[in-house]
């Protein structure tokens, strides 16, 4: 295919190389996890502010310390404000599908932002699951050719990338990034619809499972949303009116979709596989904000769970719903912590 494959000496450099390659006029992609993502920190913001459509797969894993390596969302949640679009996969199939869609979303003329394509470390990255790939030609046609706007390698039309911004201009550049994020909400939806036509698999910003008449709803991200389907089925069989919402797109955050789907529920549990120390889970903060805006304000509680790869099974998640029904949950709960 004529691709250049470069092995870097560090993640800080690999993101810098992606920035250089993307600015030069090539399609650039990389992958990382955990401390590797943390080490890229500075460069994440620069990739986004330079409006370069870099695509990066992130295997979500805990940050040190203590050094751990297993699944949680601390790495990507910490990067939520870096200006990257963040899409989370539930399973192997979604991770594959999202990675194809990521290029179209990132390179959209109205977006031009990098995309972080997240999947749960080990739980998804090291699981053996069946999946259906598409034909290479179908994918190539869907993704299309990369058309850089002002490639650095166009030596006849020189451009300066990454200049110094004084207070007179910095704020406007940041505002433009926010407008591009706003645009990305509709572009993610459009690209997902187009993708359904070639794959038969339909995705939206959120995925609701048996929510229609649910009194109690749990919201989660990643592989836990898969387990949650089993939990909902089990509890429904016992007569509990429960449902599950999976957040597929976390940045930009689909505030309106969330507010709409949670409207009028008797109780909402927000599950966070990350913790903002001194506050609560990052998803919880955004979900509550979304509900505040639409005036619905269903009672919501937060469950921190699964940090550092702590296993979370069907029985643990059933307890979340039973707590909700019984009104026994605290505002912030630490599921399965040994005290």
């Amino acid at each position: 295919m004529g691709t250049e494959y470069v092995c870097s000496e560090s993640e800080h450099s690999s993101m810098s190389m992606c920035i250089g390659a993307s600015a030069a006029g090539a399609r650039a992609a990389t992958a990382t996890a955990s401390a590797g993502l943390a080490y890229m920190w500075e460069m994440l913001y620069i990739a986004a502010s330079m409006r370069l459509p870099v695509v990066m797969t992130v295997a979500n894993r805990a940050l040190s310390g203590p050094i751990n390596i297993h699944c949680d969302h601390s790495d990507a949640m910490g990067a939520r404000d870096s200006g990257w679009i963040q899409i989370y996969a539930e399973n192997v199939q979604e991770a594959y599908d999202n990675s194809i869609m990521s290029f179209r979303i990132a390179e959209d003329a109205g977006v031009k932002l990098p995309v972080m394509n997240c999947l749960d470390g080990f739980i998804v990255t090291h699981a053996i699951e069946s999946m259906e790939p598409l034909d290479d030609e179908v994918v190539k046609k869907f993704v299309g050719d990369f058309k850089p706007l002002h490639p650095l390698l166009d030596v006849k039309n020189p451009h300066s990338f990454g200049p110094f911004d004084m207070p007179e201009y910095y704020y406007e550049h940041k505002y433009n990034q926010q407008m591009a994020m706003k645009k990305a909400l509709e572009v993610v939806r459009q690209v997902s619809e187009e993708y359904a036509k070639i794959s038969g698999r339909k995705y939206d910003l959120l995925e609701c499972y048996r929510c229609e008449d649910a009194d109690y709803v749990a919201i989660s991200i990643g592989s836990t949303a898969g387990t949650m389907k089993q939990v909902v089925d089990d509890l429904r069989a016992e007569g509990h009116k429960v449902g599950s919402v999976k957040v597929r797109l976390f940045r930009p955050f689909p505030f309106q979709d969330i507010a709409k789907v949670l409207d009028g529920r008797k109780g909402v549990a927000v599950l966070d596989r990350a913790l903002s120390f001194g506050a609560a889970g990052p998803l919880f903060a955004d979900v509550r904000t979304a509900m505040f805006d639409n005036g619905s304000r269903s009672p919501a509680v937060n469950y921190i769970y699964g940090l550092g790869g702590r296993d979370v099974g069907v029985e643990d998640l059933k307890r979340v719903f039973l707590d909700l029904e019984n009104g026994t949950a605290e505002t912030v709960n630490y599921l399965g912590v040994k005290l």
Partner: peptide, 27 residues
């Protein structure tokens, strides 16, 4: 600058130019 110019960060010039040069080789 009258020629194409790129700045990313303090520590990253050699890595950035590595990326630019790799893109050049591929393109």
């Amino acid at each position: 600058w009258e020629v194409p110019w790129i700045h990313t960060a303090f520590a990253t010039t050699a890595a950035t130019v590595s990326g630019v040069e790799s893109a050049y080789v591929a393109l």
